[in-house]
Design a protein around this nucleic acid. Structure first.
Lengths: 224, 224
DNA sequence: ACAAAAGTGTTCGTCTTACACCCATGC
DNA sequence: GCATGGGTGTAAGACGAACACTTTTGT
């Protein structure tokens, strides 16, 4: 078999979180050409010797560039085209996009290497000048994340171990950017067995009625 | 920037169709190592000089190997790992999976180049010995296709230009592998404006009551 | 007349939504 | 007592499944 030139393969990470009660995406200001000064998703080149698969590559990039230890990254899509990235052979770039929703405060901006400026941008505000096709990738990640939460499928690692239903509802509302009905929210959670109350445990001291403590029940896996 | 070795990048195609009233996947028996004699999805290596983007690559592969002219291929996922394909550097293979649902008869097996044996396999029967991780890819494509049709979102190119509701229901039932209720099927189609009747046009001659002729209405695009 | 497919109406149960209402607590 | 958030009940509506029923043709 002849040897064909291969594209520059990268992994990009759309890290979402709730910052100041709003859903935000973590972006990076580029220090180098191309698109110097523009903003983009943090990412990195696939390293065959270091990464045993795509997910491992995404984890490595998150660790190296964002100092985040293995968030629950999920693959969203792959994009590849000529003209995407002049650094590849034939100007051909292929990127696999991963995304995750992490709790507030689990990433401190100004961490990471080779990153002049890490900054959170609200999903509903206008984005800054974006490099490559990253504006589209961000909106895909935001849409997928909101759709998950709207269906009460919380990305693993986003919800704390123990929480009250009020806290969970506030988190969901901040991600979705709209208010939810309390009764419906609670009914769906208990009807579908998404959540489980810890008997006896309560949260007091809020100047109000104490709230029951809940945990997430693992969603139905595939028994094979 | 240093030059990093890149994986062998391929495009795989899960072509689905209805054959003998059952949903089937088109598979290929491999003529070469690795996995010689096993079955797999038709696919090909990404060619930077020929393909302007991933979708174009998938179309080229479909044309060259299956003699199918630009079916409506949709990207499903990307898989990449060490150990997937020994032909790549460091035994690293990256495949982007595309899938499509095409009308019966639009692919003649025994076409294509370098393909000893092209054969349709029913989605609900056991698959033959599969190469690489293609068994998993096939089931992902089947699931995505059925989910589309169950939501009455017919992959473009699958439904003929003009059809009767009876024909459309029969097609849907064959894809899903189960019967549908006639009244509900029709109500959903008209309520959601998925389908439009051609006034005056009828299909007669079936020894039964004539049927109205319908066309698909384009689903809501994104006005931007 | 009959078989068979086209086409429609009706009922029923489920799920969602909106809203009202009670409960418990710290101040 | 009262404001506030926790927690629950209920009525109204939307939606889909199941089924019965009528209509229209060719034979």
């Amino acid at each position: 078999m002849p040897i064909y030139p291969m594209p520059l393969c990268r992994v990009e990470i759309a890290l979402l979180s709730v910052v100041a009660e709003r859903l935000c995406t973590l972006l990076v200001q580029r220090e180098e050409e191309p698109y110097k000064g523009f903003w983009g998703l943090p990412g990195g080149v696939l390293r065959l010797e270091l990464d045993k698969d795509l997910n491992a590559a995404a984890c490595r990039v998150a660790r190296e560039r964002l100092r985040v230890e293995s968030p629950a990254l999920r693959q969203l899509t792959a994009v590849g085209a000529q003209g995407r990235d002049p650094r590849g052979k034939h100007d051909w770039g292929l990127s696999v996009l991963f995304y995750a929703l992490v709790p507030e405060g689990s990433v401190l901006p100004t961490s990471g290497k080779r990153v002049s400026d890490l900054k959170w941008f609200a999903a509903d505000d206008e984005l800054p000048k974006m490099a490559f096709d990253h504006a589209d990738l961000v909106s895909q990640a935001v849409e997928a994340t909101r759709s998950s939460v709207a269906n009460l499928q919380f990305p693993p690692g986003f919800v704390p171990e123990r929480f009250t239903l009020g806290e969970l509802q506030a988190l969901s509302e901040q991600v979705l950017g709209c208010r939810l009905d309390k009764a419906s929210f609670r009914r769906k959670l208990s009807d579908r067995g998404i959540v489980e109350s810890l008997p006896g445990e309560q949260l007091r001291g809020n100047a109000h009625r104490p709230a029951a403590i809940y945990t997430l029940r693992a969603p139905e896996g595939k028994p094979s």
